[in-house]
């Protein structure tokens, strides 16, 4: 599903080139649950952003569903990302001005889904996450765990093939974190491909494969 071939990411300044990633080769198959770990500044998030098409590699090839992303125009890439990838963030990143319902609905608006279909999809999602009663609340009226649930619901509403989670439990209490991780495990068992970045070994244990990145390169890659 995902194939990175010798990917570099660097920043050029006047006298030197600083590498953030160097020579990353990575393949992730459909249905995997991958955890990326590593110390701060090692390049975990950059790998995520490249996979999620929010950032471009400076060099190297990226194939997503066998399509060459590194050769694509921005609009095409955006189209691909919109239809196949869902994001979950550490800081939830819900839109403050929108209600729970509207936050979940937003990706559908950008996908151009019809109103009636939107309604039933969002209703289904609210039901599945047991948040029907909270649908008219604004993010600030929810606890962190609830906000992250909305974040996950929003990531899933577009029926993506890949879920990217950048430290999804970083801002949560441990019992809330456990709830989210169990949810991920369940999603994975239903066939969703998941890539998460985390510092927590406990969280990594929920996945099937752990990749360690150190200084912009893959240090270890274990399947368990």
């Amino acid at each position: 599903m995902i194939k990175l071939n010798d990917v570099d990411k660097f920043i050029d300044s006047k006298y030197q080139r600083t590498f953030i990633l160097k020579g990353i080769d990575l393949e992730i198959k459909q249905g995997e649950f991958v955890t990326i770990m590593g110390p701060s500044g090692a390049g975990k998030s950059t790998v995520m952003n490249i996979i999620g098409m929010l950032d471009e590699p400076s060099q190297g090839e990226y194939y997503f569903l066998d399509e060459p992303i590194h050769k694509m125009k921005e609009r095409k890439r955006s189209e691909l990302h919109k239809h196949h990838i869902g994001f979950v963030f550490q800081a939830y990143h819900l839109i403050d001005e929108l209600t729970v319902y509207e936050n979940i609905e937003t990706p559908l608006l950008y996908k151009g889904v019809k109103s009636s279909e939107r309604k039933s999809l969002v209703a289904e999602m609210l039901d599945r996450f047991q948040m029907v009663a909270k649908k008219d609340l604004f993010p600030e009226q929810l606890s962190g765990g609830q906000q992250q649930l909305v974040g996950v619901a929003r990531a899933l509403i577009g029926q993506p093939k890949l879920l990217l989670a950048d430290e999804p439990t970083g801002n949560l209490h441990s019992d809330q974190a456990e709830e989210i991780m169990k949810l991920f495990q369940k999603l994975n068992s239903e066939g969703m491909t998941i890539v998460q970045v985390t510092h927590s070994k406990e969280n990594a244990a929920y996945g099937k494969r752990t990749i360690n990145i150190v200084d912009g390169a893959i240090d270890t890659d274990d399947t368990h």
Partner: peptide, 16 residues
Amino acid sequence: AKEVGVRKVLGAYKNQ
């Protein structure tokens, strides 16, 4: 800025 970022992640085009 955050809202712009989120919307782009959720699939908004610049024109939108």
